[in-house]
Design a protein around this nucleic acid. Sequence first.
DNA 1: CTCCTGTATTAACAACGTTAAATATAGGAG
DNA 2: CTCCTATATTTAACGTTGTTAATACAGGAG
Lengths: 212, 212
Amino acid sequence: MGVIERREREREEVRRKILTAARDLFASEGYDRVTMRRIADAIEYSATTIYNHFEDKDDLVQALCQEDFDRLFHHLQQTPSPADPVEAVRQLGLAYARFGTSYPNQYRFMFMTPGKLEYLKEDDVSPGEQAFGLLRAAVTAAIEGGYFRPGDVDTMAQVLWASMHGAIALIINLQPQHWPHAPAAPDLVEQVIDATIRGFLAEPAAARRRGR
Amino acid sequence: MGVIERREREREEVRRKILTAARDLFASEGYDRVTMRRIADAIEYSATTIYNHFEDKDDLVQALCQEDFDRLFHHLQQTPSPADPVEAVRQLGLAYARFGTSYPNQYRFMFMTPGKLEYLKEDDVSPGEQAFGLLRAAVTAAIEGGYFRPGDVDTMAQVLWASMHGAIALIINLQPQHWPHAPAAPDLVEQVIDATIRGFLAEPAAARRRGR
DNA sequence: CTCCTGTATTAACAACGTTAAATATAGGAG
DNA sequence: CTCCTATATTTAACGTTGTTAATACAGGAG
């Protein structure tokens, strides 16, 4: 028969159109300027059509979030991982920051919209969980190699995440001229990850050997 | 005559009522649930009256922000400052975090609403600027005392700020059950500031002497 | 008394998210 | 071909939002 398959394919096609239109609007105009009607306009559909594919605006944003967490995960996974475990942690942090500063609007509604970032943990194989798993693994390697002081892996990964998140959040939310006293240091992200990593090193002398 | 003085006093009184009602609503219900009409209801005025005292909703939020930055500054200023410069930086960071986690809704629209935190720097004596000045001074003392490695003071203060901000932001935006792999460490804030401070120490051995 | 100035209210507007009803469209049954 | 049914889409509408224009009103000034 094949007719229902085609219908399903068409349905999926419209859903895709909605998602990409919404993503483009979010990315270019920011969260609040995106309305159901403007998304619909962009794909030349009526606004109510969206409700055939998503329960409500929250549901649409949730779907976008899931996709974006997936992108983040692949972005992190694709960054080359140096042999030195400490440098690997560093590169992972920098890759995460690059994602955040490159796609500020996506990052904003992934991590800065209260109640929205529950999609980090839908289950143990969700992209959010997997992304954190990369960091966790990198930290574990650094500990087991004797580079990082022994400590709770999850906590240490959280510390790294929190530090990077703070740097990203300030950078994408605060215009240069509005920073108190001085605009953001151009290498703020690097400074943050380096300071935190340095704080984790087992052998303080190692920090100097590594030249940071 | 005194009539214009009385009028001005009455005017200021209404303005105050609006501000406190708005603050209460923001604090108890969060940003999006606060509408002009609900603020007006709370003080038993018409919604349009607010527009006699504030240009628009943004202007009202701005006024609230200014007050809250003032509160933050005094909150930081009142925390006891230990003689040890490193410990002083630490206590300042912890005080900042206490402010953020104690008043999450205030912290949210102070630091997490894009385009809103320009009130950090209206001028060089604004509360936001002053608050950052406290951190800057503490860092300067730690450097000059030989505890922190020499480096750009502003950058180092920014690193500390960013790290703490990240921890606060994650804690107040992410419910415990939604954290990937494990809920937030109960001492995450302490772990973050300690790691960053440790990364700044001039004499790595000093970190061990201090027992962290 | 009249006039003027500033404040508060009522009524209204456009835009928002969302829902219900109306309508088109396409495929199967007779 | 005609009729029926199911799905997709649109039109119309509702309630709520921020905001503005028109209006009522109070009280000092002349």
